[in-house]
Structures are given as structure tokens and as C-alpha cells.
């Protein structure tokens, strides 16, 4: 194994792109889990993927198409919110079916759909980094405002309405932030790796953390450690990044499962 490969400048931008996702997705995932909407995260990622394949038949660039698809999916989620998990399950199946049918009927679709399944982190570059850096800054800027509102909305759901705020904006802002981040993630590390970063670190942290701040910190720490291991392992073992990351996260999840049986 050639360890110097891991530190090759060729991989600097992909490394930073993945690191930004390892910071953002588990952080947002904590709020997604608190809202019991983790299935919606998979629905949004799958819808973004379908948009990429479908749009890729006609338009460029892929990232822009993914963002539009994610925004449309977030709007659909808002409309279907009352139907809960049933609607999200339909969104997942629709996205999966659309992506694969479109792929089978286009020249580049097959490559795109394979990339969305396996992840193509090592081929991402500056466009992803610019977008992800913007998302990291945006999230850091609005987190103090939106965090409190999301928690109040969860634990005291009538407080906004009782004070005359019938439709608070933070729900839509959060849905859009999640959808856009997942669109970036789906095109960088693949649909299921993106979903795994939203789902698994918070799933572990929710069990062990003594409070909310430590849940957020713990969730991000788990994701970053798993990401660093996966990034090196996928290069050194010449494996696709997405499945390697999911496998490493699953190993980390054993800690939670074993604690439960213990």
C-alpha cells in the first residue's frame, strides 16, 4: 500500500469536499432525527439523484440540476408533510425508479447513476468546494437562530401559533438547507453514503450524549473520524468511496447496538 497517495495534492479538493459534508450532514441529521424525519432525508437525497440523472439527459451542469431537483423535493416534502413517512416512502421509490429508468435511456445516465450509487468524491473539484464552503458558512451563521426555533417547534409546538406566528419560516429554511446539502452530497459521495452521514452519527449520539450540545458535537466527531478512515481506506484499497464510508459508519454503529444488548 502506498500511504503517500492519501496525501497527494490531487486529492486535496475532494478531501475538503468530503470533510465539509462530514461536518454538515450529521449536524443537520441531529435536527432531522429530532423531528423524526430521517426517512425524508433519504427521500430528498433520492429525489436529488433522480433529478441529476433525468436532467443530465438534457442539461449541464449536473450540480445545478441537483440543486433544482432538491428544492423541488423540499417543496414536495412541505406539501406532503401531513402524510408523514408514507409520503416519504413514495418519494424514495419515485426517485429510485425515475433515476434508473432515465439512466437506461440516456448516453451518460448510466455513468451518472453508477456515480450516485458508488459516490465519486475523488472526482469532485472547485464547484463543489465553493458550494459546500458557502453552505458551511451559512449553516454556522444561522445555526444559533434556527436551532432554538427547531427545538421550540419540537418540544412546544403550539408556542409559535399561540403567539400569532401561524407559519414560522424556520421550517422551510431548514428543509431547503437539508435538501440543498443532500443534493451536493448525493453528487459527491452517493445517495446512500449521504443518507448514512445524516442517519448513523446522530443515531449513535442520541443514545449516549448527556445533552443536546454534546449530541451535536458527538455526532460531528463520529462522522469526521469515520470519514477520515474511509477516505484513506478507499484510496489505499482502491475501493469506491461511498460503500466504504457506509461500511465504516456501520462498524461505528455496532457500538450502539452492542450497548443495547449489553
Amino acid at each position: 500500500m502506498n500511504f503517500s497517495l492519501v496525501f497527494d495534492r490531487l486529492f486535496l479538493l475532494p478531501f475538503l469536499n468530503g470533510l465539509a459534508l462530514a461536518l454538515l450532514l450529521p449536524l443537520l441529521g441531529c435536527y432531522v432525527r429530532l423531528r423524526e424525519e430521517w426517512l425524508a432525508a433519504l427521500g430528498l437525497a433520492q429525489a436529488a439523484a433522480a433529478g441529476v440523472v433525468l436532467g443530465g439527459m438534457f442539461l449541464e451542469p449536473v450540480l445545478l440540476i441537483a440543486l433544482v431537483a432538491a428544492a423541488l423535493a423540499a417543496a414536495a416534502k412541505a406539501l406532503l408533510a401531513r402524510s408523514g413517512n408514507d409520503a416519504y416512502a413514495v418519494m424514495i421509490l419515485f426517485g429510485w425508479s425515475t433515476a434508473l429508468i432515465a439512466a437506461a435511456n440516456s448516453v451518460h445516465g448510466d455513468d451518472l447513476s453508477r456515480a450516485l450509487i458508488q459516490g465519486q468524491l475523488y472526482f469532485t473539484g472547485l464547484p463543489h468546494l465553493e458550494g459546500l464552503a458557502g453552505l458551511v458558512l451559512l449553516t454556522a451563521a444561522i445555526l444559533p437562530w434556527i436551532s432554538r426555533r427547531l427545538l421550540v417547534g419540537r418540544f412546544f409546538p403550539d408556542m409559535f401559533r399561540a403567539n400569532g406566528l401561524a407559519k414560522p419560516h424556520h421550517d422551510l429554511v431548514f428543509d431547503l438547507l437539508v435538501a440543498i446539502t443532500l443534493a451536493f452530497a448525493a453528487t459527491a459521495i452517493g445517495v446512500f453514503a449521504a443518507f448514512a452521514l445524516v442517519f448513523i452519527p446522530p443515531w449513535i449520539a442520541f443514545r449516549f450524549a448527556p445533552g443536546w450540545k454534546k449530541t451535536l458535537i458527538g455526532s460531528v466527531a463520529i462522522a469526521v473520524v469515520c470519514y477520515l478512515i474511509s477516505f484513506a481506506a478507499a484510496i489505499l484499497l482502491d475501493q469506491p468511496f461511498g460503500p466504504v464510508l457506509v461500511a465504516v459508519l456501520l462498524v461505528a454503529a455496532l457500538g450502539r447496538l452492542l450497548r443495547r444488548h449489553h
Binding site: L34, R148, R154, F155, F156, A162
Partner: peptide, 27 residues
Amino acid sequence: TRVMVQAQRPVRLPEMPITGHELLRLT
């Protein structure tokens, strides 16, 4: 007038990693 509501069935998830202090700070 500022209004506060205590719901008849407050949200109780199987796992809620939030302390009493953190819950009180919300209101």
C-alpha cells in the same frame, strides 16, 4: 401579551438527548 402553552400530551420521543436545563432555556 406573551402566551405560553403546556400541551396535554407533550412530545416524548424514545430518545431525547436534551437536559432539563436545555429544555427550560427554550422557553
